[in-house]
Structures are given as C-alpha cells and as structure tokens.
C-alpha cells in the first residue's frame, strides 16, 4: 500500500493492464487470503488476481486463466542458521507461513511433524521471523525477495534449500481465478495475458519490480 492508501504492487499493475485489454473498468478490493476464494464464490468479487497458484484442489471449485507467472517456493532463515530443508533438518524448529496457501498444504502433506505457525498475512510472518519467534519461513521466492530479503528489514536473512515446484502442491503457476461456468471471462483473461506478453507491457511491469523474467518456462 502506498502513502495515499492505494493498493500497489506487481499483481495490481498486471490487473490494471489486463482490465485495459479486456476493455472493462475494474474495481480493486482487498481480501484476507483465507477468505478470498469464498469471497469469489459468494460473488463479492468476480476475479482473483492475487498470485494464486493453479492447483488441482482449487480447480475443483473455481476456474483459472492460463498462468501469468510461475516462481518456485523457497525457505528463508537467518544467514548462517545452518538449516536444511528436510523433515529431519527442520525437526524442533518452527516454520511460519500464511494460512491456507500451497505452502501450508505442502508442509501438511510432506513434513507433517514440523511445527508450523500460521499467519493471516505474509507481513506478520516477516515480523515474527525478525523477532526470532520462528526459525524459518516458507513462501513464494519472488514474493519474499521482493517483499523482505531486498528490504532493510530482511538484511541478514537468506534463502536455503532447493526450489519447490511440485505440481501436485504448487500447481502450474499463478493464474487469474474466476467462478466455474464463467468461461467467457476466463478466456478473456487468458487472451489478455497473451496480449500483454506480446505488446511488451508485461515486460515493462515485470522489470519495474523484478530483475529476472518471472513468467517461467
């Protein structure tokens, strides 16, 4: 959020560019992550443009456009903490993450014995990481380098372990979610994503926030 109270960021710029292409005026509303899918289903909004991963589980209740980026999940911790990203390496440690995310599902499914702390927002995860209440955080690598590691608060913290891209948990990238049965809107978003890729608008937004191309292969 900027000083005049508007929501800003990569997702917002992408959303605005896509709405332009489709030729609709879009109104942005913010939602807590764990209520965002119910909000879509209950028609409190018509699309979710919030770095939501396209997963099998979510596809059962909502529909997605094609992806607009794909970045791996990763762990971060204090530099030199000497942690490894296995169930044994994280035994006795506390990992913080956002409630209801793909990272939450992954930990429940693959490392059920590692102690988790669940937060409503990623910012609270960073606060508790720097306060030393949690030993590591697990989230999207780009969101974390952009929102934490490259900021003053994130000095002295670093990634550890491998890239996490398992389709079973993390899906095939982030897409725009719409209600089931709204194929027209879904296809309009997919076409708009292709259009801003072709026109260079995507690259301009990408370069504004990130040093690398995050669209993924």
């Amino acid at each position: 959020m900027n000083s005049s109270g508007e929501i800003v960021g990569f997702d917002i710029d992408i959303a605005n560019a896509l709405c332009d292409k489709i030729g609709k005026s879009c109104k942005m509303v913010q939602s807590e992550w764990d209520g965002i899918i119910p909000a879509l289903i209950e028609r409190k909004c018509d699309a979710i443009i919030a770095s939501m991963s396209i997963t099998e589980e979510r596809m059962q209740i909502i529909d997605f456009s094609t992806k607009y980026y794909n970045s791996p999940g990763r762990f971060i911790a204090k530099e030199g903490a000497g942690l490894t990203d296995t169930a044994e390496g994280l035994a006795g440690k506390v990992v913080g993450l956002q409630r209801g995310t793909t990272f939450n599902d992954f930990m429940d499914g693959e490392m059920p014995d590692v102690e988790l702390k669940l937060y409503g927002t990623q910012d609270e995860v960073y606060l508790d990481l720097t306060a030393g209440r949690i030993d590591a955080a697990f989230a999207d690598s780009i969101a974390m380098s952009d929102g934490f590691l490259n900021t003053d608060a994130g000095k002295g913290y670093a990634f550890f372990g491998r890239d996490y891209l398992e389709v079973k948990y993390f899906g095939v990238g982030a897409g725009i979610a719409v209600r089931k049965g709204e194929e027209d809107l879904r296809d309009a978003f997919s076409a708009a994503i292709q259009a801003i890729r072709d026109s260079g608008e995507y690259k301009a937004i990408n370069d504004k926030y990130f040093a690398v191309d995050i669209f993924g292969g």
Partner: peptide, 22 residues
Amino acid sequence: SIITIQDILGVGRTVNAKYYIA
C-alpha cells in the same frame, strides 16, 4: 487467534482455509 494461537476461532479459520469454505 490473530497472533497464531489455535483457539476455537483459530481452529475454525484453519479448517475454513484448508477446504476453501467460508
């Protein structure tokens, strides 16, 4: 529940989030 404690509401919200229910 908002400072990570799994009290009654915390559990309710976790279950909601797990299955995308409201």
